[in-house]
């Protein structure tokens, strides 16, 4: 999977978590928390969704890597490069 595809997946997950939010202006470098007001329960959901859809296990100590879109994609790229997008 390419980083562009990974970004789409994350957007799709965020859309599911916050169906009423407008994600079109999301700034990739800025933390999600500042733009979307996600709380810790919602962060858990990003992790859970990745596990549900792609069986990717993310250890708790790596959660901080999921702070922004850019850092998330960078973190996931090596872990998802051999997977097919569904």
């Amino acid at each position: 999977m390419t980083s562009v595809e990974i970004r789409e997946i994350i957007l799709d997950i965020l859309e599911g978590i916050a169906p009423d939010d407008d994600l079109s202006n999301l700034n990739d470098e800025q933390p999600f928390r500042e733009q979307l007001e996600l709380d810790s329960m919602d962060f858990l959901d990003i992790v859970m969704e990745l596990r549900k859809r792609y069986r990717i296990q993310i250890p708790e100590e790596d959660y901080p890597q999921l702070a922004s879109m850019q850092s998330t994609v960078e973190y996931l790229e090596p872990r998802m490069k051999d997977l097919q997008k569904v």
Binding site: I17, A18, P19, D20, L36, E37, D39, M41, D42, D45
Partner: peptide, 20 residues
């Protein structure tokens, strides 16, 4: 109101994937 991001109502809607 719709669009509010904080508070229990907004949080539970997100968690249950239910629209406002």
């Amino acid at each position: 109101p719709k669009g509010t991001k904080k508070g229990p109502l907004a949080r539970l809607l997100r968690q249950l994937r239910i629209g406002w």
